[in-house]
Structures are given as structure tokens and as C-alpha cells.
Amino acid sequence: MIEVKDVCYTYEAGTAMAVNAIDHITTTIPDGQFIGLIGHTGSGKSTFVQMLNGLIKCSSGQILYNGEDINAENYNRRQLRSHVGLVFQYPEHQLFETDILTDVMFGPKNLGLSEEECRSRAEQALYAVGFKERHFTQSPFDLSGGQKRRAAIAGVLAMKPEVLILDEPTAGLDPMGRDSILDLVSELNRTRNITIVLVSHSMEDVARYVDRIMVMNDGHFILDGPPTDIFVQVDKLEEVGLSAPEITYVLRKLKARGLDIDTNALTYEEAAEEILRHRSQLEALRTRE
């Protein structure tokens, strides 16, 4: 569990250009949750997630991981980074070894594990993201964009994190690549009970998968709750340059034009069910014509 207590982060502190990138945030990330962290570019979301694994030290406030202050003098932050894994944007840009197995072993090796342990962790991680044994000796630079990204995610997974943070893992991928990454992340959450924080600026991406959405703007959370609660507040989302999923707008349009439906559906399948519940009303409309 991660507890964030009244945390601030200031860029260029002490100068005229000081900017509060993170502005008094207090929140809790319980174990096993799948969180979507949404905000537009520059809202502070990337800064926030880097604070969670100690890459950026907060200017004030406290961050506790399983009850311990991660910014305490003698706290082992390198160890922390294996528990709280962070996958950066375009993670494939960090691949550097000659084959993907060795590259994925980089993380475990840094933890000081034995060669066999590193190898077995790396193999498990690669299987988990969908690679077969014959791929292991391939150069990371010969893979396709989506494959590279999965190899990079395996590099963090091999450290066996309890919390996995992904900063816009679908950026630049086509729909096929995007779906396969999101399915993978969702599976890690369900089958391994890894806590997931998925950073994104797309509601569409997260609506289907997450338990909880946190909306960030100007360095603090303006909305926090289950997806259905968030998407009701379309006006508030639009105010900060975000939008609800497309399906929400479709349902609101139908409602505005007189169909008395609930606009909470998150997927088109749910929306279809909701509309079909009003079949009698629709048929009445047609016969009247």
C-alpha cells in the first residue's frame, strides 16, 4: 500500500520561476487496485508517479510504502524501485542489450540476484508478456514497435514488483498494439494481483479496465472515484481539457433527444443493453410515426 500525505513538489524552488508541479496531494493506493491516472500534458501526472518510486523527492510531505517513509535517510530506495516498478513513456527507447533475454535480466541483476535466478525471472517475465522461447535470443532492435514495448515492460516485471506504474503505455501504438498492452496489464492485475497505476490522457483507454480513476489538473486531483462516478461529471472534465468516453456522449445525446436512459454505461455492449431495456419506448415511437 502506498500512502501519500500532503505532498508538494516545486520546480526551480527559490527562484521567480518556481512552479508547483505537485500541489498538496493526499491519497492512498491500496493493494491490488487498478487505477487510471488521467490528466492532460503538464498536469503533473508524470512527476507524481516518479515520486512514488523515489526518483523524484518531494519538496514537502511524506510518501509511505507499506508504512515506511521512502524519503527517509536510510531507506533503501533501490530496493523500493523493485517493489514499485515504473515503466516510462516509450520504454522501448531504454532497451540496450544484444538480445531481449539479457536485456530483461538487467533489472534482476541490479538487485544482486544469482545468475540462475535472474535468468528464470527474465524468462518468466517474457512469457508473461507473450514471448516464446525462440524470441529470447532476438535483438530487441529487430522487433516490431508493439513487441519492443512488451519486452521493455518485461524488463520491469522481472523485478517482481508489487505495484506497477505505466506512464502512457499505449502512446504511439496502433489499435492492435494498444489493445494487446491494455489486455496484458489488466491480466497482470487480475491473475497476479499486481497493483496497477495506468497513466493516460485517454478516457477511452481506461474506461473499460480500471476500478478507480484519478483525474489530475494543475498538480492536484480534481476527481477521484469509480469510472461511472467520474464520467457523469462531463462538464468538469471538459473544463480541464479532457473528455468523457465517446459512448458517454452518445448516450447523453440520446437522452437529450428524449430517450429516458441511464448514461452510465462504459462500453458499447453495456450501452446496447441499456438502450434495449427501453425497447418498448422505442417501438412506441416508431408505431406513432
Binding site: 516518479q50 518510486n53 526518483l55 533501490r78 524501485r81 523493485s82 516498478g85 515504473l86 515503466v87 516510462f88 520504454p91 527507447h93 531504454q94 540496450f96 538487467f106 533489472g107 541490479n110 538487485l111 524488463g155 520491469v156 523485478m159
Partner: peptide
């Protein structure tokens, strides 16, 4: 960015010995 990403994978850039440091630059 790359340095931070490798740190997230446990890389250590604060090591004392020079050989270690040079080696740690490869990633």
C-alpha cells in the same frame, strides 16, 4: 529520461569505483 528509466530498473549511478561507473554508463 533514459537515466531515470534505468534507475527504475535498479541501476546504480552513484557507485564509487571508476570502473563500475564507466560500466554503468553503457545502459
Amino acid at each position: 529520461k533514459i537515466q531515470k528509466a534505468q534507475m527504475a530498473r535498479g541501476a546504480d549511478f552513484e557507485s564509487k569505483s571508476i570502473i563500475q561507473r564507466v560500466k554503468s554508463m553503457v545502459p
